[in-house]
Amino acid sequence: RTSMTEEYRVPDGMVGLIIGRGGEQINKIQQDSGCKVQISPDSGGLPERSVSLTGAPESVQKAKMMLDDIVSR
């Protein structure tokens, strides 16, 4: 199975929601999608934060859908 890494961007203000209490939400995204999700520690003052998604292409797609779902709330 091919693994890929894709850079994705999320609004900086949503990072807390994506990570969740004690990392609960980000762990759920990783478990449900099978994709490794790494959020860059700092946006460098930019409105968006970089997130790197690593996994099989379908896992990366699923993680993106889950991120979009959180961001659109």
Rank of each mutant, 00 (worst) to 15 (best):
residue 2 T to H: 08
residue 63 A to Q: 02
residue 55 G to A: 00
residue 4 M to K: 14
residue 59 S to T: 06
residue 19 I to P: 04
residue 52 S to M: 14
residue 22 G to M: 09
residue 57 P to K: 06
residue 37 V to R: 01
residue 40 S to G: 11
residue 49 R to V: 08
residue 57 P to S: 05
residue 43 S to P: 10
residue 14 M to P: 00
residue 49 R to P: 10
residue 32 D to G: 07
residue 20 G to R: 03
residue 9 R to H: 15
residue 58 E to F: 03
residue 64 K to W: 01
residue 31 Q to R: 10
residue 46 L to K: 15
residue 47 P to Y: 12
residue 30 Q to W: 03
residue 32 D to L: 13
residue 70 I to T: 04
residue 53 L to Q: 01
residue 46 L to R: 13
residue 73 R to P: 15
residue 24 E to M: 11
residue 54 T to G: 02
residue 46 L to F: 09
residue 47 P to I: 07
residue 32 D to C: 08
residue 35 C to M: 00
residue 10 V to P: 03
residue 27 N to L: 10
residue 32 D to A: 13
residue 73 R to H: 09
residue 17 L to P: 06
residue 41 P to D: 14
residue 1 R to T: 14
residue 28 K to N: 05
residue 12 D to F: 07
residue 2 T to P: 06
residue 47 P to W: 04
residue 31 Q to M: 10
residue 71 V to D: 03
residue 41 P to M: 10
residue 31 Q to F: 09
residue 59 S to W: 00
residue 14 M to Y: 06
residue 39 I to K: 01
residue 16 G to M: 06
residue 51 V to G: 01
residue 53 L to A: 01
residue 59 S to M: 06
residue 26 I to G: 02
residue 26 I to F: 03
residue 34 G to T: 02
residue 72 S to G: 15
residue 68 D to H: 05
residue 32 D to H: 10
residue 20 G to W: 00
residue 33 S to D: 00
residue 18 I to M: 07
residue 67 L to N: 02
residue 63 A to M: 00
residue 17 L to C: 08
residue 20 G to K: 03
residue 23 G to N: 05
residue 50 S to W: 08
residue 7 E to A: 08
residue 48 E to A: 11
residue 66 M to W: 03
residue 5 T to S: 09
residue 53 L to S: 01
residue 56 A to C: 15
residue 61 Q to E: 13
residue 12 D to Q: 11
residue 39 I to M: 10
residue 67 L to S: 02
residue 15 V to N: 04
residue 70 I to K: 04
residue 46 L to S: 13
residue 13 G to I: 11
residue 14 M to C: 12
residue 46 L to I: 08
residue 38 Q to C: 12
residue 2 T to N: 15
residue 63 A to W: 00
residue 56 A to I: 08
residue 59 S to A: 13
residue 25 Q to D: 12
residue 10 V to H: 02
residue 56 A to Q: 09
residue 45 G to D: 09
residue 66 M to I: 05
residue 21 R to P: 13
residue 56 A to V: 09
residue 50 S to E: 06
residue 44 G to I: 04
residue 27 N to H: 09
residue 42 D to H: 07
residue 7 E to S: 10
residue 11 P to K: 07
residue 12 D to I: 14
residue 50 S to A: 11
residue 32 D to Q: 14
residue 14 M to S: 06
residue 30 Q to H: 04
residue 11 P to E: 06
residue 28 K to Y: 04
residue 52 S to P: 00
residue 23 G to K: 07
residue 45 G to A: 06
residue 37 V to G: 00
residue 38 Q to L: 09
residue 69 D to P: 02
residue 1 R to K: 15
residue 64 K to P: 01
residue 2 T to Q: 03
residue 73 R to K: 14
residue 38 Q to F: 10
residue 21 R to L: 14
residue 60 V to I: 15
residue 67 L to I: 14
residue 70 I to Y: 07
residue 18 I to H: 03
residue 40 S to I: 10
residue 43 S to A: 13
residue 19 I to Y: 13
residue 50 S to R: 14
residue 31 Q to C: 10
residue 16 G to A: 11
residue 8 Y to S: 03
residue 10 V to S: 02
residue 65 M to W: 06
residue 20 G to S: 05
residue 15 V to D: 06
residue 2 T to A: 08
residue 2 T to I: 11
residue 15 V to Y: 06
residue 13 G to W: 09
residue 12 D to H: 14
residue 25 Q to M: 08
residue 67 L to F: 03
residue 42 D to F: 07
residue 46 L to A: 11
residue 30 Q to L: 05
residue 43 S to K: 09
residue 32 D to M: 14
residue 46 L to C: 14
residue 34 G to L: 04
residue 57 P to L: 04
residue 56 A to F: 04
residue 23 G to H: 04
residue 29 I to P: 01
residue 43 S to R: 12
residue 63 A to N: 02
residue 61 Q to V: 09
residue 17 L to M: 10
residue 23 G to Q: 08
residue 4 M to H: 09
residue 41 P to H: 14
residue 54 T to R: 05
residue 56 A to D: 12
residue 8 Y to C: 02
residue 37 V to M: 08
residue 48 E to D: 12
residue 72 S to L: 09
residue 69 D to G: 11
residue 19 I to M: 15
residue 36 K to C: 07
residue 61 Q to K: 14
residue 66 M to R: 03
residue 8 Y to R: 03
residue 51 V to S: 01
residue 1 R to G: 10
residue 49 R to Q: 10
residue 34 G to C: 04
residue 45 G to F: 06
residue 26 I to A: 04
residue 33 S to G: 00
residue 5 T to R: 07
residue 22 G to S: 07
residue 7 E to C: 07
residue 65 M to N: 14
residue 16 G to R: 10
residue 11 P to W: 01
residue 61 Q to D: 07
residue 63 A to D: 01
residue 5 T to G: 03
residue 15 V to I: 11
residue 70 I to G: 03
residue 55 G to S: 00
residue 11 P to S: 04
residue 13 G to K: 15
residue 73 R to C: 15
residue 5 T to M: 10
residue 35 C to N: 00
residue 18 I to R: 02
residue 54 T to L: 05
residue 4 M to Q: 15
residue 6 E to N: 05
residue 65 M to R: 12
residue 26 I to H: 03
residue 39 I to V: 11
residue 73 R to S: 15
residue 55 G to V: 00
residue 9 R to E: 09
residue 67 L to H: 02
residue 33 S to L: 02
residue 70 I to D: 02
residue 8 Y to M: 12
residue 10 V to A: 05
residue 27 N to I: 09
residue 22 G to K: 08
residue 51 V to M: 08
residue 51 V to Y: 03
residue 53 L to R: 00
residue 7 E to Y: 14
residue 24 E to R: 12
residue 19 I to N: 12
residue 52 S to K: 13
residue 1 R to L: 10
residue 37 V to L: 08
residue 27 N to M: 10
residue 17 L to S: 12
residue 72 S to P: 05
residue 65 M to C: 13
residue 36 K to F: 04
residue 19 I to D: 07
residue 65 M to P: 02
residue 6 E to V: 15
residue 63 A to T: 01
residue 25 Q to A: 13
residue 18 I to Q: 04
residue 8 Y to L: 10
residue 29 I to E: 01
residue 48 E to C: 07
residue 24 E to S: 10
residue 55 G to L: 00
residue 21 R to A: 14
residue 46 L to G: 15
residue 67 L to Q: 02
residue 65 M to K: 15
residue 56 A to M: 07
residue 8 Y to E: 03
residue 35 C to R: 01
residue 42 D to Y: 11
residue 20 G to P: 02
residue 32 D to I: 08
residue 66 M to P: 02
residue 59 S to V: 04
residue 23 G to D: 06
residue 24 E to T: 10
residue 1 R to I: 15
residue 17 L to V: 09
residue 4 M to S: 10
residue 69 D to W: 04
residue 2 T to E: 12
residue 38 Q to S: 11
residue 44 G to C: 09
residue 49 R to K: 09
residue 21 R to E: 15
residue 56 A to L: 09
residue 38 Q to A: 14
residue 39 I to L: 10
residue 40 S to M: 12
residue 39 I to D: 03
residue 18 I to Y: 03
residue 15 V to W: 10
residue 3 S to T: 15
residue 21 R to N: 15
residue 27 N to P: 03
residue 15 V to F: 10
residue 10 V to F: 08
residue 13 G to E: 15
residue 13 G to V: 04
residue 64 K to A: 02
residue 61 Q to R: 14
residue 69 D to A: 12
residue 31 Q to N: 12
residue 28 K to F: 04
residue 52 S to D: 04
residue 60 V to D: 01
residue 23 G to Y: 04
residue 37 V to F: 01
residue 14 M to H: 05
residue 26 I to E: 01
residue 34 G to H: 04
residue 38 Q to N: 12
residue 51 V to E: 01
residue 13 G to P: 08
residue 8 Y to W: 13
residue 68 D to Q: 09
residue 56 A to K: 07
residue 29 I to M: 02
residue 31 Q to D: 07
residue 27 N to S: 11
residue 52 S to C: 14
residue 57 P to V: 06
residue 6 E to P: 02
residue 42 D to T: 13
residue 42 D to A: 13
residue 63 A to G: 03
residue 48 E to G: 11
residue 4 M to G: 03
residue 47 P to A: 14
residue 28 K to A: 08
residue 18 I to E: 05
residue 53 L to Y: 00
residue 68 D to W: 02
residue 58 E to Y: 06
residue 13 G to S: 15
residue 71 V to K: 07
residue 59 S to E: 13
residue 9 R to C: 08
residue 30 Q to V: 08
residue 33 S to K: 00
residue 5 T to H: 05
residue 47 P to F: 08
residue 64 K to N: 01
residue 24 E to Q: 10
residue 57 P to A: 09
residue 1 R to W: 08
residue 24 E to F: 12
residue 53 L to D: 01
residue 26 I to V: 07
residue 45 G to K: 06
residue 11 P to F: 00
residue 19 I to Q: 09
residue 50 S to F: 06
residue 4 M to D: 09
residue 51 V to P: 01
residue 32 D to W: 05
residue 47 P to T: 12
residue 62 K to S: 06
residue 48 E to F: 09
residue 38 Q to T: 14
residue 60 V to Q: 02
residue 62 K to V: 08
residue 39 I to H: 02
residue 8 Y to V: 11
residue 11 P to Q: 06
